[in-house]
Design a protein around this nucleic acid. Sequence first.
DNA 1: AATGAATGAGGATTCATTCAT
DNA 2: GATGAATGAATCCTCATTCAT
Lengths: 186, 186, 186, 186
Amino acid sequence: MEPLRRASLVQATIHEIGRAGSLDVTVGQIAKTAGMSTALAHHYFGGKNQIFLATMRFILTEYGTVVRDHLSRAKTPRDRVDAIIEASFDKTCFAPATVAAWMTLYASAPSLPETNRLLALYQGRLRSNLTHALRPLSPTPQAHAEVIAALIDGLYLRSALSGATSSQTAKSLALATLSRLLKDPA
Amino acid sequence: MEPLRRASLVQATIHEIGRAGSLDVTVGQIAKTAGMSTALAHHYFGGKNQIFLATMRFILTEYGTVVRDHLSRAKTPRDRVDAIIEASFDKTCFAPATVAAWMTLYASAPSLPETNRLLALYQGRLRSNLTHALRPLSPTPQAHAEVIAALIDGLYLRSALSGATSSQTAKSLALATLSRLLKDPA
Amino acid sequence: MEPLRRASLVQATIHEIGRAGSLDVTVGQIAKTAGMSTALAHHYFGGKNQIFLATMRFILTEYGTVVRDHLSRAKTPRDRVDAIIEASFDKTCFAPATVAAWMTLYASAPSLPETNRLLALYQGRLRSNLTHALRPLSPTPQAHAEVIAALIDGLYLRSALSGATSSQTAKSLALATLSRLLKDPA
Amino acid sequence: MEPLRRASLVQATIHEIGRAGSLDVTVGQIAKTAGMSTALAHHYFGGKNQIFLATMRFILTEYGTVVRDHLSRAKTPRDRVDAIIEASFDKTCFAPATVAAWMTLYASAPSLPETNRLLALYQGRLRSNLTHALRPLSPTPQAHAEVIAALIDGLYLRSALSGATSSQTAKSLALATLSRLLKDPA
DNA sequence: AATGAATGAGGATTCATTCAT
DNA sequence: GATGAATGAATCCTCATTCAT
């Protein structure tokens, strides 16, 4: 029973964050959406903060799954780097709730140590995934990984928040820049 | 008197946001830091939201000033692009309060139309500044501007939030990538 | 539990309005008198205004009950008209709290649509009750009802607010005027 | 200067009460409408309550003037009673601001001694005016005065608050009832 | 396991009032 | 005489959290 309830609450949290476009969501709203009492929500999570943390962990895990999925279909070394980029601009990453959750992750990182750790985890994984994938392709995989990672984050920010750049354009720009970097690495 | 009070409040808001690391700041705290009553704060701004908006506008203006400063010292075309990048990684942009304010700008963009507009303003200006500066140097200034802009935002995110990448490293990476892009633009 | 709490709050509101002699009553006072927290008061009613509205509805209902009571004991047609008059000058109508609530009903009618509706309801019912009762006795029941209704309200106003006229005198005057009107209706 | 300022404020108060339909009017609004600072309003009146009292006194005085006007044109004894009735249903008495002020007079009578006194003054004057006018016409001028006074108040209440009864109808009903009472006084 | 009931703490906002100039 | 500046006090309302059942 417990895992189901927790999953319900996390889904409800995502839903409500998406609806509000921000963290301004009450436990009451979440519990109602999840079809249970606020008391039960507290019982299973211990507090509002922990509901949020679990939700962010869920979103990160989901992203991790998408990345693994794409990677599993990669054949050549270059495919592997492309896979990571494509996963990062997957449709699922642009769901309003996901965008909002992601932004609150950034916003709460300076104040909440646990969120900070979570964010560091994500940033570390992205970099190491990229470094690993770039090793057969680049003489300076570390530096290139750092650049591509930042590019992914920056393009996501711009396409997710303002309609100015579409997610397709963003992805193309990232892939094109990668090609440029690898062509003449000097 | 009014402009002084408003400035005081904006400064106090930055200070308190920095202290809290987030928007979880009460009007009372801000007013106390600014050395006045909450009633006066409301009198001069009309509400909490408008205090925050004014603060974000201030931070954007401040950033704009830094950019203009750097640009005014540029001699060659390439200098102009470098100036924008260097301004974006200026020490002032990494003050805890500024980082927090910036993150809350991102976080509140999906829910508050006014914040969204503000963010769009920033993103638009950065792009147009870069496009303009890149015109003499690149055959595709628009696309390059988009990439550099995203790179700036992404590197800032990574160096401002986690200690992993220093602001110096971030700046170097941005400049190096720019050089690479311009060297063999095809 | 909910109906009990709501009833408690309505009673407390009447009590506090009576004590203050006006609507200058805080939710805090009401809740304390009702023996609960302000939060619970808000929980059950949604807001101060709705507490007041419920209270006014209660007073109107109470008055309606008194009228029905008196009517049920009436034997002759004339008894029915007398019953309405007597009910309107019943002791319960002169409790300080009731008087104050009644006056605030008048005072808030111009500004609050819901109060206005409530008042119209009362005025309509009084008139229709009187019209109905006067039909066997008067050739112009409508006009007479209007006059008697106004007389009731006016006498109530004068005896409830200033000690000048006692409620007994008021009642007698109303009954006497009724007799006069019915004697020579031409 | 002082009398002008005071008059301005009283007019502004009437205007604002009319706009709000109730006493929910701030000193700030009144002062602004009167074209001066809140501090000056306080200077001339000493406080909000006294502004309101002065306003109510003004309305009562105005009503007194209308009554005197009508009385001065009366020729026969019966004319004098009619004059009082007609004055009470004068157009000026139905201005939204006047209605609202009048209702708040009733509503604040139970709690504010000074308002109570004011109301008693009005009720006393109306009764004595009517008694005086009825002396040549009625064997029981006191009782008749009381009835007519109450009728006036009651009809006013009904026609001023709900659109159900027009002021013309109200006046006619009062005059007709008066005729009836005087015709066969027994 | 589940919840309705209940609350304490806190926060934004309003406003009458005061005072130095 | 007149005002801008300033505030203390009060109020409504919200919400995370607890607990008895």
